[in-house]
Amino acid sequence: MTRATSPTTVHRDPADAVLAMVDHVFARAATWTAWDGTPAHVDDRVYTPHKAIRRVADHLVDHLAELEARLAGEEPQPDHWHASVITTPADLAPFTQEDLDEARSRLTRLARIWANRLHALTDEQLDHSPGEGWTFRELALHVAESVYYADAVGDLGDPS
């Protein structure tokens, strides 16, 4: 899978970038229990708290599957996400403290899997990755750009 442009990789540890992305998402998401149900319109898309979490998780899963397939010498399985083009009825649900707790558990574990995998790779593997597409360092830094989804919803203030 070929990408049009690659993320900036200068002086960035890819594992730290993925972990920092998830921390950034949580900083935003901690305010989303105050969401009034009005979707945010950003660029040509609509975003809600649930949709932002869904897209971050999808990105982590999709690109981790790509990384693992390429390491195994396989072609990555194409994804069939609807991505941010659609907004599902579930995306429009209120965002509760329980939803935040679930998101924290899910995204923390996915980010830790990414960090463990990336730390197990050498610089050579990170920068000269097998198969077609971005290097694994670039792929991880692309995943770190998932802050976009949380920033689309934004900081909704103190939920208390």
Rank of each mutant, 00 (worst) to 15 (best):
A27G: 10
D58T: 03
T48M: 02
D44L: 05
L110T: 08
A111V: 06
A34L: 07
A17F: 05
S146R: 01
Y149P: 00
H59S: 15
H59P: 00
R12F: 07
E75L: 08
R109S: 15
L126A: 05
T33N: 02
R45F: 12
G73W: 12
A57M: 07
E132H: 11
V153M: 00
T135F: 02
D127H: 07
A15I: 04
V56S: 04
V85A: 14
A4P: 05
T122C: 10
T5A: 11
T38R: 11
G154S: 04
H24T: 09
L64W: 12
D123T: 08
T5S: 13
Q125A: 11
L67R: 05
L19K: 13
T48Q: 04
D155M: 03
P78Q: 07
Q125E: 07
W81K: 14
P49I: 03
A152K: 02
V85E: 15
H63I: 08
W32E: 00
T8Y: 14
L110Q: 15
G131A: 06
V25N: 04
H82D: 15
V61Q: 13
D151E: 14
E102K: 11
D151N: 11
A83K: 15
D79Y: 13
T8N: 15
A17S: 11
T9P: 05
E74H: 12
W81N: 10
M21S: 09
P14L: 00
A140Y: 02
V22L: 03
G133P: 08
W32T: 00
M21A: 04
I86Q: 14
A115D: 03
P89F: 11
E74Q: 14
A20Y: 04
A152N: 01
V153L: 02
A15N: 04
G133W: 00
E98D: 15
L64K: 14
A30T: 05
V143Q: 03
D13Q: 01
D43Q: 14
Y47W: 11
L64F: 15
V18Q: 01
I86G: 15
D155W: 09
P76K: 01
S105E: 15
H41E: 12
L64M: 11
V42F: 00
H142D: 09
T108G: 12
